[in-house]
Amino acid sequence: MRAKSASALMAALAFATFARADELSDLAAKATTQQPVLWYESSQPEQIALVTKAFNAKYPAIRIQYVRIPGGNTIAARIIQETQANARTASLMTSGSTQLAPLLERKLVLSRDWQALRVAKDMPQTPFAIPVATSMFVGLYNSRKIPADKAPATWDDFISKRFEGKLGTWVRPPGFVDLVALHGEDKTRDLLKRLVTLKPLLYAAPELIAQQIAAGEIDAGIGFFHSSQATIDSGAPVAVKFLDPTPINTIWGVVIEKGSNPEGAQVLAAWLVSPEGARIYEDATKRGNPWLPGTETAKRVGSNRISQMPLMDMANTARISDDFSKILGDVRAVR
């Protein structure tokens, strides 16, 4: 139902939207006369401060206010609550597809032709979302406990008896859900069930996985590349292994129609997916855009096959996500 209405919207927009060459400048000029752009995301304020500083070097008159929503899973709820109460709400949300679905359902998202704002044609965009960055799901292990020649290198290596009781992962399953796109649903479900029998520790925040590997609490884990970087940068003995296929979870830039300064939000979103904006966002948050050549993320992905559920397959993604969450929930039963 959701996917159907979204497809209809896309089709309608294809006919209705006509780009104008100077639309970005027009929007930028209009944005300066309005209240600040309110931006909701889950990154640390210090990280986003670096991004907004660079943005303001280019667009000094567009003011931005940032609110961190920890974990990112309540951004949509907050926008809905604020919109329903006619209160000031975000005009830009950068988050995963699960946050987009409830906003689309309530017709809160602004649709537009992003190419008119100079967004690259070959980016996997829709009228209501553009890919700002991706979270890459990777294998992690303690390089002091596991020598390089014995390091796990494949999904089966990580999810093996060798790591029983010594493995950790995130309590949420989006990495495994995205793996379904290339690995297949049944095969991924079997993998996840095998993981559960290994009695893994399930952490509330993905950042904890690298920390606990560094501390020796677990030997290996499956988590996000970006959320392990702070630990690795501190010199901790944590190594990253890009698995094949590599699941990625895209962070979509979404403009809220009734948000505070939607014009400014469009300018900011378009800048975030420009080569300059993407580089700065990647430097600050360690999450990069694999569709922009030259980003570190594009280089890292390299020849790996990347696996991601299609954005418009939201209903199916939600179904698989529900199913996989329940499987992870069974850890309680075996531990």
């Binding site: 709820a77 699960t98 409830p102 399930l202 531990r335």
Partner: peptide, 23 residues
């Protein structure tokens, strides 16, 4: 929570933050 020993308060946290459907 890491070892899946839940009490009601941690279950509430999971309902608020870890719902796979986004809300």
């Amino acid at each position: 929570m890491p070892s899946r020993i839940f009490v009601i308060s941690s279950h509430i946290y999971a309902l608020a933050n870890d719902n796979p459907r986004g809300l």
